[in-house]
């Protein structure tokens, strides 16, 4: 680095510059006191955002039909999670790439998730203990051919468009749904009770802090996104930098968020990858500004420095 040795010799560097008393420690102590007062007042007056998390239970209670529709999509293999791809499964629905750059594919499947089994069938299997009707319905579903299952699921999915809700239960018109009504009614019951939250969180370990499965299931439904839209958190609403309510969010992500609003990013199915690559290049450029001709000359062309050092040259 040019001048490093010379600049350490501060006496020589500041030759001819008027040196004045300056109390750095006092400045820092005053800054500590000032910021303490500021954040104490802000915290006392404005508090902080804390909208309670959504649970599978609150979803099933607020939108039972939507809950069952999502469960059917999981069984059909048509949900976002079921069609996602790495790192959850080998599908391709959410795989992003840019030319030969395919890091999502390269990374492979490391968090295996089978939405039909993990979100629907396994919880129902657990709930079928002591429930012969549900056990029988599950056995019938498992014994059926893929074509038969698909026929039942399609029929039930169409029936949900005409469904009504009575006492929290979804009521569909009579039809050829096989065991679907029994299975989904039971899934809704355990979801409404809160038991499904526990089952999706549970693992082979006693302690766990991983919420991948319940959050993927929530993300597959429309209810979750609807709440986010009410809180202006969708990507199209600059949601990455927003916070619930009127609180400031991660406003420092404004540039990252902006790319999602403009072409070609907003029309690309690989928008995330493109935005991250773009921001990576910009971040490296920012770090290397001192070495990039043109970029490092901007401060000379736009003389904001005259405001910074106004009158100091004399």
């Amino acid at each position: 680095m040019r001048g490093s040795r010379r600049s350490v010799d501060q006496a020589a560097y500041y030759a001819g510059v008027r040196m004045v008393p300056y109390d750095l420690v006092k400045e820092l102590v005053l800054a500590l006191a000032g910021t303490a007062i500021l954040v104490l007042v802000l915290a006392a007056v404005l508090s902080s955002p804390d909208v309670p998390p959504v649970t599978i239970q609150s979803w099933a209670q607020a939108d039972p039909t939507g809950f069952e529709r999502t469960a059917v999509q999981e069984l059909q293999g048509q949900s976002t999670s079921a069609q996602y791809g790495p790192p959850y499964n080998h599908a391709t629905g959410s795989v992003q790439s840019f030319g030969f750059i395919q890091p999502q594919e390269w990374a492979g499947v490391h968090l295996p998730v089978d939405p039909a089994r993990d979100f629907v069938l396994q919880p129902l299997q657990t709930a079928s203990a002591g429930n012969p009707q549900l056990a029988s319905a599950l056995a019938r579903y498992r014994a059926a051919s893929p074509g038969q299952r698909s026929s039942w699921l399609d029929a039930y999915a169409h029936a949900l468009d005409k469904a009504t809700v009575r006492n929290g239960q979804v009521v569909v018109p009579p039809g050829s749904y096989g065991p679907m009504a029994e299975m989904l009614s039971n899934l809704l019951t355990i979801a409404r009770s809160g038991a499904l939250d526990g089952q999706l969180r549970s693992s082979t370990r006693f302690y766990q802090t991983d919420f991948t499965r319940p959050l993927l299931f929530l993300g597959d439904g429309d209810y979750f996104a609807g709440l986010a839209q009410e809180q202006h958190l969708l990507g199209s609403q600059w949601g990455v930098m927003n916070e619930t309510g009127s609180y400031p969010g991660q406003t420092w992500l404004w540039l990252y968020t902006m790319w999602y609003q403009i072409p070609p990013y907003n029309a690309s199915s690989s928008a995330d990858l493109l935005v991250i690559l773009s921001m990576g290049v910009l971040t490296v450029a920012l770090a290397l500004v001192p070495f990039i001709p043109g970029l490092r000359d901007i401060p000379r062309w736009i003389p904001v420095h005259r405001l910074i050092w106004r009158g100091s040259d004399r």
Binding site: P49, D50, V51, P52, P53, V54, P86, P87, S94, Q96, P103, Q104, W106, A107, F211, L215, L216, L218, G219, F224, L227, A228, Q231, L233, G235, G239, V240, E243, T244, G249, S270, D272, L273, V275, I276
Partner: peptide
């Protein structure tokens, strides 16, 4: 809270897209 749930569900796509 809800915000962390929503950020997580959306941010996972960005993290997954670059393979991490």
């Amino acid at each position: 809270n809800f915000d962390s749930q929503w950020i997580g569900v959306n941010a996972k796509d960005a993290m997954n897209s670059v393979g991490i």
